[in-house]
Design a protein around this nucleic acid. Structure first.
Length: 935
RNA sequence: GCGCAUGUGGCGUAAUUGGUAGCCGCGCCAGACUUAGGAUCUGGUGCCGCGAGGCGUGGGGGUUCGAGUCCCUCCAUGCGCACCA
């Protein structure tokens, strides 16, 4: 009976489902292992062959760990809130829940066919009210929390209120905007004096109204509502977080993004910057992801320095090079800087106003694209804190309002941008370096020695840094300071298909809905668009209120639900807590997380952030979610092209395309085999090609051109797993995807090689056959056969331990080839191979295991152990090299001493020939490796 | 511009610590079987050379008895950040 994969796979799929073979339960007597895939957004297009690459790899590892005796948690679910379903709803009026439901059904069908060992009883969907109830609950935790810089921990807001009651803001060291009172006035009747600088007493606090207290607390909450400058995307009708923007346009759809001041919910992730960087050292993630996160968080150490300007204005700057302080020749403010208005002199007023207005008009992207140097003098001066010199204050849009203090001290000698600015406006360039030529460019080396810098003369950056900071501290003009690029994350989206906030407004004060009343379910609306007045879609709901008080109309962003889903899998049906304490304790961190690198600055950062919050508040016993992560590469498509002669319906073969002026058009890859076009199929493909004519190559064929690019519907290059499973089976697909190369690597999809892998499974199957029927021998396997088996056990085990999925397939092939050559059909030799094959080809392995007479599933068998007695060999075939070049081989006993090996080599007849009459200078003998004769 | 990663046959790749470069598969060539095959089986296949042999892991240099692997430098490709002071 030939390898009948269709029947085999269908039968086992059914049996696994019936028996709930992959259900796992917590078992304190067994060691746990948690293998997780990044759950997918269920799009309408379904899965293509690229999606399952990581799923297959993690499934193999999960099955392997199960064979090793671990209790393996390997769940799957859906990140089911999202834009496409909403956009489809806008077009068709169909409720996104329905579209989502259909897409999930399709995904499930496709996933099931591949033979994954998911415990589907633990499925989660972020859009299900049972799930988002707990997303809302976590939002509540964040709302009711603040960040204590004393203990470096997230703490309940009640503790902060107690501190205020007790001693006002004195002794409170919280992460917040340090100058919150400047931008966030406490409503109408200001209770503090004009000189208020952020500190208040318990009497002040007690004297505040409810609204004032709440407004003040907003500056401390981790989830907070504030007027902030956000990235507004008019085309999508919503705000976007920084990580949702690539190259100045929206990641989804590529629409322009503008800066807009809006009252929005935000997450105080910036409080966690240092921990998010430091804890990277405690997790086993790919270096490039860690590096991306480090860059994104953007830590830089420097100093804050204050310059006293005219009109009682103090300009504070942030610099990473305080050592160059003596080289300051001007200050530059961002156009949005708060002091621009007051510092502008009468003579300069028009010029400044024009410049500031112009900057405002430009989008971020335009500012970026514009390489032109621009700026304007304010007409004011500030005093150098050490020299007392008067320094001109300029405005320039190369200074960003959102970073540091929005003001810089310009040192043309030590910074290229300042240098360019100075050259352009003919400002002074003070040379503060002993040996640097500043005629062409600035000196940016930290090793350059300082000059013309008073007490810093002769020092380099490292020495001068501390010296100057110390001096600034003494005179109160500045101090050391660490700055981060990471901004707080906007958490509001003006969309329908997302989690509603558990928030209503009582006289404008945001109030949290009690846990007992959750979930706050999405209301029905008549359309999924913003209202006429520009309010989010939820504003359309007729009874979107609580006891007559209005509900929050924004919804949460896509990353809310995915920031904690790995915890819900542990206890998905719990109605009283997000996951029980015992279960969280049992399953702990994700041991292996598999997914794409594209989430480096989004999901992977946000889930780390939420994990730290939950850890600080005592809900989970670990502060990093994913212990080890592997990023699978992208599988690219290989698009095919036909060449239509301009203004005709005639297509010319690839080889001859240059004879005419042609237009390159996509041809569906299903119509192309080995770059040859199926002409009849092509004519029937699209109506416009029905009457197409063809100019063929010399072999009478039509050759297509090709290119490797991302798989996409519009490129007609999408390869779905379904058709390959139909043709070759899921086991072949699984093995083939692994065989393609290292999982981390991106590679073009190439269907050609799949035959070879399919063949391997057939040949493996054939080992168990005699005259087309199942037949294995009970005889003892020979030494040679056992050697093959144990060599393979060793190789495969080692490869899986180091996550080298591709080389395992190779090792299976070698074993199959060798056992075929040996005509081995011994049970003793074949059984361990079936066990080892089962993670890769679970259906075939189950079938063979059953045929071998077992009544239990192969997946519970323990992993075979390589026994060294089968691997040892008496002799080693030494490569004998002369000056590093291998010349011949010599088989010598393994235990032979180096001196004896040397003697044997010298005595060998071929040695004289390769010595060419010379005397060996030295002979290197590496036991069981190599002999090298040095001449 | 800064940071990170990757460069090995016609192609995908292999070579845990420096120790026989090219395993396994695709493709290609030859043969067998077959009415036929995009089936199956057998053999061959880095490049140059009839051969002996020489040359070969992006280029150049170095360390070493020995380098795909370590160091320096340059180049190419991909990814991330990008006026971040």
């Amino acid at each position: 009976m030939e390898y009948d994969f269709r029947n085999i796979e269908a039968n086992w799929r059914k049996k696994w489902a019936q028996d709930e073979s992959y259900k796992v339960t917590e078992d304190p007597n067994k060691k746990k292992f948690y293998v997780l895939d990044m759950f997918p957004y269920p799009s309408g297009a379904g899965l293509h062959v690229g999606h399952p690459l990581g799923y297959i790899a993690s499934d193999i590892y999960a099955r392997y760990m199960r064979h090793k005796g671990y209790n393996v948690l390997h769940p799957m679910g859906y990140d089911s809130f999202g834009l496409p379903a909403e956009q489809y709803a806008i077009l068709t009026g169909q409720h996104p829940a329905k579209t989502t439901e259909q897409n999930i059904a399709r995904y499930r069908e496709q996933l099931d066919k591949i033979g994954f060992s998911y415990d589907w009883s633990r499925e989660v969907r972020t859009s299900s009210p049972d799930y988002y109830k707990w997303t809302q609950w976590i939002f509540g935790l964040l709302f009711n929390a603040w960040y204590d810089l004393e203990t470096n921990k997230t703490c309940p807001i009640s503790e902060l209120i107690a501190k205020f009651e007790d001693n006002g803001s004195y002794g409170v060291n919280a992460h917040m905007d340090e100058e919150w009172w400047k931008t966030y006035l406490l409503e109408a009747d200001h209770i503090f004096s004009a000189h208020f600088e952020g500190e208040f007493t318990d009497t002040d606090w007690k004297g505040m109204t409810e609204a004032q207290k709440e407004a003040l607390l907003m500056n401390y909450r981790i989830a907070y509502l504030a007027d902030s400058v956000v990235n507004w995307c008019p085309a999508l009708g919503t705000v976007l977080a920084n990580d949702e923007i690539k190259d100045g346009v929206s990641e989804r759809g590529g629409h322009p993004v503008e800066q807009k001041k809006m009252r929005q919910w935000s997450m105080r992730i910036s409080a966690y910057s240092e921990r998010l960087i430091a804890d990277l050292d405690t997790i086993d993630w790919p270096d490039n992801i860690k590096e991306i996160q480090r860059n994104w968080i953007g830590k830089s150490s420097g100093a804050r320095i204050r310059f006293q300007a005219e009109k009682e204005v103090t300009i504070e700057v942030f610099t990473t090079r305080p050592d160059t302080l003596y080289g300051v020749s001007f200050l530059t403010l961002a156009p949005e800087h708060e002091s621009v208005e007051v510092l502008t002199s009468e003579e300069q007023r028009n010029a400044v106003m024009e410049y500031v207005a112009n900057s405002k008009l430009k989008t971020e992207r335009e500012r970026m694209a514009e390489k032109k140097i621009s700026g304007v003098f304010t007409g004011s001066y500030a005093m150098h804190p050490l020299t007392g010199e008067q320094i001109p204050v300029w405005i320039g849009d190369y200074v960003l309002a959102g970073y540091g203090t929005g003001a810089v001290m310009a040192v043309p000698a030590g910074d290229q941008r300042d240098y360019d600015f100075a050259k352009h406006f003919n400002l002074e360039i003070k040379n503060i370096f002993a040996e640097s030529d500043l005629s062409e460019k600035a000196e940016t080396s930290k090793d350059a020695l300082l000059a013309n810098s008073d007490f810093l003369n002769g020092m380099n950056y490292y020495a001068a840094f501390d010296a100057v900071c110390e001096r600034l501290m003494e005179i109160g003009a500045g101090e050391k300071r660490v700055n981060y690029r990471l901004r707080d994350a906007v958490f509001s989206r003006q969309r329908y298909w997302g989690e509603p906030f558990p928030i209503y407004y009582e006289n404008g004060i945001p109030r949290l809905i009690n846990t007992e009343e959750l979930p706050t379910e999405l209301p029905d609306v008549d359309a999924y668009l913003p209202t006429e007045s520009g309010e989010p879609p939820l504003a359309r709901a007729t009874n979107w209120e609580r006891n007559g008080m209005p509900m929050e109309c924004n919804t949460m962003p896509g990353w809310a639900g995915s920031s904690w889903y790995f915890l819900r899998y542990m206890d998905p049906n719990n109605h009283s807590v997000f996951a029980s304490e015992e279960r969280i304790k049992y399953w702990g961190q994700v041991d292996l997380y598999m997914g794409g690198a594209e989430h480096a600055t989004g999901h992977l950062l946000y889930s780390r952030f939420w994990t730290k919050v939950l850890f600080d508040l005592g809900y989970i016993p670990f502060n990093e979610p994913f212990k080890k992560m592997i990023n699978q590469g992208m599988i690219l498509g290989r698009s095919s092209f036909v060449y239509r002669i301009k203004d005709s319906n005639t297509f010319i073969s690839f080889e001859r395309r240059k004879e005419f002026e042609t237009q390159r058009l996509y041809a569906a890859i299903s119509l192309v085999d080995n770059d040859k076009l199926n002409i009849e199929g092509f004519k029937n493909w699209l109506p416009e090609y029905a009457n197409a004519e063809f100019m063929l190559n010399e072999n009478g064929e039509y050759t297509c051109g090709w290119e490797v690019e991302k798989m996409s519907k519009s490129k007609y290059n999408v390869q779905t797993p379904d058709e390959l499973i139909e043709k070759f089976g899921a086991d072949t697909l699984r093995c083939y995807e692994m065989f393609l190369g290292p999982v981390e690597q991106s590679k073009p999809w190439d269907t050609k090689g799949i035959n070879g892998v399919h063949n391997f499974l057939r040949r493996f199957h054939r080992l168990f056959l005699e005259n087309e029927t199942f037949a294995v021998s009970s005889e003892e396997a020979t030494a040679a056969e056992m050697r093959v088996v144990h060599k393979t056990i060793k190789k495969i085990t080692e490869d899986l331990e180091r996550f080298s999925w591709n080389t395992v397939v190779s090792a299976f092939m070698i074993a199959t080839n060798e056992l075929t050559d040996l005509k081995c059909n011994k049970r003793q030799a074949l059984e361990p191979l079936v066990v080892m094959l089962s993670p890769y080809a679970p259906h075939l392995a189950e079938e063979l295991w059953k045929d071998l007479g077992h009544s239990t599933s192969v997946m519970n068998e323990s992993w075979p152990v390589a026994e060294s007695k089968y691997l040892e060999d008496d002799n080693f075939e030494y490569p004998i090299s002369f000056n590093g070049k291998t010349r011949f081989f010599l088989s010598l006993p393994v235990g032979m001493s180096g001196a004896d090996v040397e003697a044997q080599v010298l005595a060998h007849e071929s040695t004289a020939k390769y010595l060419e009459g010379k005397t060996p200078k030295k002979i290197i003998v590496v036991p069981k490796r190599i002999v090298n004769v040095v001449m």
